[in-house]
Design a protein around this nucleic acid. Sequence first.
DNA 1: TCTGGGGTCCTAGGACCC
DNA 2: TCTGGGGTCCTAGGACCC
Length: 407
Amino acid sequence: MPIIMHVDMNSYFASVAQQLDPMLRGKPIGITGKRTERSVVAAASKEAKLLGVKTAMSTWEAKRICPSIILVPGNPEAYAEITHRFNKIFDRYASAVQKFSVDESFLDVTDTARDYLGAIMFAQMIKRDLRKECGEYITASVGIGPNKLIAKAASDMMKPDGLVVVRPEQVIPFLNSLKLKDLCGIGPRIGRRLETMGITTIQQLRETPPVILEDEFKSYGLWLAEAAWGRDASAVNGKEEAPKSYGHSYTLPRDTHSVKMIQHYLLGLCDRVAYRMRRDGCAAQQLSVYVRYGNFSGTGTQRRMKEPIADGLIVYKTAWAMLEGLLDISNKEIHGLPVRLIGVSASSLTEPGSTPSMFTKDRKMTAVLRALDKARTRHGHGAWTRASLIPLDLKERTSGFAYDHEL
DNA sequence: TCTGGGGTCCTAGGACCC
DNA sequence: TCTGGGGTCCTAGGACCC
């Protein structure tokens, strides 16, 4: 029987901010995107949580509930650095480590810890190493169980800095103490659908014949039936998988009917997507665009490429043609609902490292892109920007809009 | 001026081909 | 009374996770 550990960093982004900046320690802080307006709290410090701030709450509401909150823009480089450090710690204790997100990992300690007592010791050693090597403010909640599903639910039970162990014989009583939504995989929609079927507890889910669940949820129903018993056969996958898509989206500074404004931000998004593809030596065979309107409804479309693309301008021209088909446009104005957010995503990627000449036929352009990419690799995304992105940038700034000019 | 931004996987239905 | 059937590609949309 496997022994799996799930390590979940507590208030991760906020903890990193407090670790790096002593002025933020002991204070209610919220981490936002690069912009604080029209954004949400990606992570709240424990002080902010005590005052009622929750993850994913709009910054607007967070400020209303907790006027003393300090909003801090995220610092992706710092997270990557600390994530790298704790991954090195995990490698010491586990035969396989699977990164579940930037702040969560699964560890297979079956062969290294040997038994649950050994796993508990490992968990304590990992916590000690984390403090020592990542900082006093970086703490984690650890769950230990016979599979990923149980380990993950266990780590959620005690926060912050918790350690919860669920031995195989304790799985059923443990599950019976949880709510349906505590299982990773049962979100609000599935939860509501189960409720309309009269299933409100994990116990009831377990007593429901799998075939009924399969009828309602297709193959997902069979997964639900297994999950109700605390079964999860998926292994800890230690291999680093190449991304399957690269996407960026952006909520505009204000809802708009302006074609120009949308084209402006779209070009920035496409440039970023294309840059990441070139950096990783791949190209897109499928492109998706997405629009969210002012009333939060949305629509999208995707298109197969005749040949793989990785040039920002080509990505942009394609994406705009697709977006144009989605929007009702005449006289450079969009009709109907104003646009709130636009997004672009590149998928069906070619094998990394397989891109011959960056998929642009123009050799001069290839050389230009290569030089520009080099500058970004060395000096960051702000190293250069397209001239066409500047006018609106200045206009935005003089009109008092705070917005990310790196776009 | 309530509701971000990054991903993954699955299903359904139509087109198309043999 | 009528409609083939199976596989694959493509697009749209929905669900989940952090």
